[in-house]
Amino acid sequence: MKIVVRDVTFAYNSHAVLHGVSLGVAEGEIVSIIGPNGSGKSTLLRCLARVLQPRRGAIFLDGREILAIDARQWARQVGYLPQAGGTSFPITVLEAVLMGRKPHIRWGVMPRDLEAVERAMRYTGVEEMARRPLGELSGGERQKVLLARALAQEPEVLLLDEPTTSLDILHQLEILELLRQLAVEQGKAVIMVMHELNLAARFSDKLVLLKDGSIFAAGRPEKVLSVASLKAVYGVEAVVSEGRFGLEVLPLRPVAGRGTLGGDDTT
């Protein structure tokens, strides 16, 4: 296992957000953390990214407790994309991606840094935007640039917080395919928080379904996403079917607001 989370508990002040979460992620694996708003998805990811420190339990990267790893060493192994956070002062796309080399740079920029930047920008298809200000890009382009920054770090693990939220469907697919490719071809472990269940199911090897800060179910998508689990966790009536391209989830209505029932599953 590349990453092991063992019995992690986290609380903001006295408000507990995670209770005894444990999971493992192997190399080349894509794991999506799903669950309703406030279920602790982002908190779990932020614990994994060392932004937050668990109150109890520990997280291990290659068998080493992550809080014990030197910051620079850590940054060379783990890339983290938080949810869209704006910059206060404008920077260009090239400068943004070059920042990914920070853990490798002492002060001067070496040719190999620029090579890594170029490789990362080509990989996500933003190389012709190098001179443009980051703030002028569309949401989808911007996300590709930020992914390029994480790749310029040359990490073994990628952590992403809702990488496709607020992107159009083309950009959603492009980003997820890039992640898929990174996992399959380069063996990177990818852990992301996802809201869109169909995309999460299609592009992930495993899903982790959180409910109130605990893991409700984890494993292969078809095992985790079921009519019963969606009802119990999200409070939603849904149809789950095995479609041509994998699992298909169609949410119907909130359980609480049930007016007419039955018959839906046959459509």
């Binding site: 060392r50 932004v51 910051a71 704006g86 910059t87 400068e95 920042m99 920070k102």
Partner: peptide, 15 residues
């Protein structure tokens, strides 16, 4: 420079 991209990102870049 890294801090301009946000505190969390800077932290994840080893700052």
């Amino acid at each position: 420079n890294a801090l301009l991209a946000g505190e969390e990102v800077a932290g994840s870049l080893g700052v």
